[in-house]
Each structure stands twice: as C-alpha cells, then as structure tokens.
C-alpha cells in the first residue's frame, strides 16, 4: 500500500492543518472546555514545541493530532486528508504509518523485548518478518540501543525505555512525530539524549511536534506555540522551517549519546 492510500497528499500540503478545533469533556454542569477553538498549521520539516500551564489543553490537542481522540468540533487535515471523515480501518492505518507517538510514560508493552516492541507497528502495518527486523534494528541503532535489543522494558532504565519508544515511533518513517512531554519523566542526561535525537531527526527533515513544560526543551524547537485555557496565545518562530534546528551544534549532547 502506498503512502497516499488515505487520500491525495502532495508535498505542497501542510503536514498538519487544524481549524477552530474545540474539545469539550463531559456534559452539562460538569462539562470541561479543554480546547476553545485552536487553529494551527505545521509545514513539512518544522519542529514545533507546544508550551503552556498545566491544564491548558496541550495533551488534549496532542491526542487529537495523534488520532487517539476526536475533536468536538472543527476540522483536522493530516497531509491534506480530512481525518474526521476516515473510518476505523483507515484511521488505524493513519496511526500506523503517518504518525509516531511518544508518550511521557513510555508505554512500551511489558514482557516483550525492545526489538519486539519496535517491530510491533511494522507487524500491524503488514511488513514481512525479515524486513521488519532489519528496520527495527536500524531504528534501535539510531537511538543508540543496538546492545539492548533483547532486553524487556523492566530491564531498561527510564531513559533507555524512552529511547525504545522513540525508535518505535520512528520505525514506520511517519510523516509526523508527536511527543507528549517525552522528557517529563527523565533526568537531565537522558533528556539531553532524547533532545539530541530530535535535533538530528529535525535536521534530516522530519516534522516534529513536542509538548513540554521546560524552556530548555523548547529552546531546541524551530517554533514555540503557547496555549492558555484552550487557546493559542503565542506563536513564535526561533528558526526557519527549512533550516537546521537552533541548538543542533550542542556537541555535548550528541557526544554523550554516541558514547553508549
């Protein structure tokens, strides 16, 4: 199946186009308006950090972008395709091929080796076993975990688990890499590792959207979007879309990574 199976996406289309998206949790008295009309366009190759206070709706927005949840109102185009109009089967395929999702809490499947975890999206995507193994090993190599492929999640450190999760998100070569506070549960060293990986991915042209609380993390992004009470209140560009990410020359982080 081709990359454009879900519609006719062209290079000119933005990777992500959101118009007036709202999300209301619950009903009546208890209703929570988590998003109150968010519009956002992300061009291919951009590296966006979404910031905002706790409860401002960052995760809600991210889950909608990642097709894990549906908006109450508004339109959402992913690579020019209206996601709201897709059925279950197509939606599963979009999650599988277009999006790589990295969670704050890693979300690896227990009792499965790192390799098996990374292979899983390929298995659901119908990739043959040999090809699957090759790509999974390559992805694990990219995050510097070639020597840990047989380990199960409970045998890995938090930072290593998150790197496995990054490998899993990358292995299908998604058009969009989403990360909800990927470094939220990590110490500074592991955070540096992950950020270095993101920088290199951005440099190679991958589109990244990352949620973060930390200014240090946001500093790596080409663009910083601020949310407050379910609305975008600030949208600031730190580096051009087609240029390298602003802190790519941070040698210490890439160095730390290659040491392992």
């Amino acid at each position: 199946m081709s990359e454009t199976a879900e519609g006719t996406a062209t290079a000119a289309d933005p990777v992500l186009l959101i118009r007036d998206v709202t999300k209301v949790y619950g009903e009546g008295e208890a209703a929570v308006r988590a998003l109150r009309g968010v519009s956002l366009t992300v061009e291919p190759g951009d590296y966006v950090a979404i910031m905002g206070a706790s409860g401002s709706g960052k995760s809600t927005l991210m889950n909608i972008i990642g097709c894990l949840d549906v908006p109450t109102a508004g339109t959402y185009l992913l690579g020019g395709v209206d996601v709201g109009a897709l059925d279950e089967v197509r939606l599963a395929r979009v999650r599988n091929r277009r999006i790589g999702f990295i969670f704050q809490s890693f979300n690896l499947i227990p009792r499965m080796s790192a390799l098996a975890n990374v292979e899983l999206p390929l298995a659901y995507g119908g990739v043959r076993a040999a090809e699957r193994r090759r790509r999974a090993l390559a992805a694990l190599g990219l995050v510097g975990l070639s020597d840990r492929v047989r380990h199960q999640p409970n045998e890995l450190s938090g930072g290593q688990q998150q790197r496995v999760a990054v490998a899993r998100a990358l292995v299908t070569s998604p058009t969009l890499l989403l990360a909800d506070e990927p470094t939220g549960a990590l110490d500074s060293t592991s955070t540096k590792d992950i950020l270095a990986i993101f920088d290199r991915l951005s440099l190679s042209g991958r589109t990244i959207v990352v949620i973060t609380h930390e200014d240090d993390v946001a500093a790596h992004a080409k663009r910083v979007v601020r949310l407050m009470d379910g609305r975008i209140v600030d949208d600031r560009r730190q580096a051009p879309v087609d240029g390298p990410p602003p802190l790519i020359d941070d040698r210490s982080s890439t160095g730390a990574m290659s040491e392992r």
Partner: peptide, 16 residues
C-alpha cells in the same frame, strides 16, 4: 486495557 490502548495507538486495526 492499557496494552490494548498502546497497540491501537501504534496502529493495530480493530480486527487484529
């Protein structure tokens, strides 16, 4: 349930 959520998030179709 969590595992099912993870599987679905990485693109497991309902049939699988």
């Amino acid at each position: 349930t969590r595992e099912i959520g993870i599987r679905k998030a990485i693109g497991a179709p309902r049939g699988a």
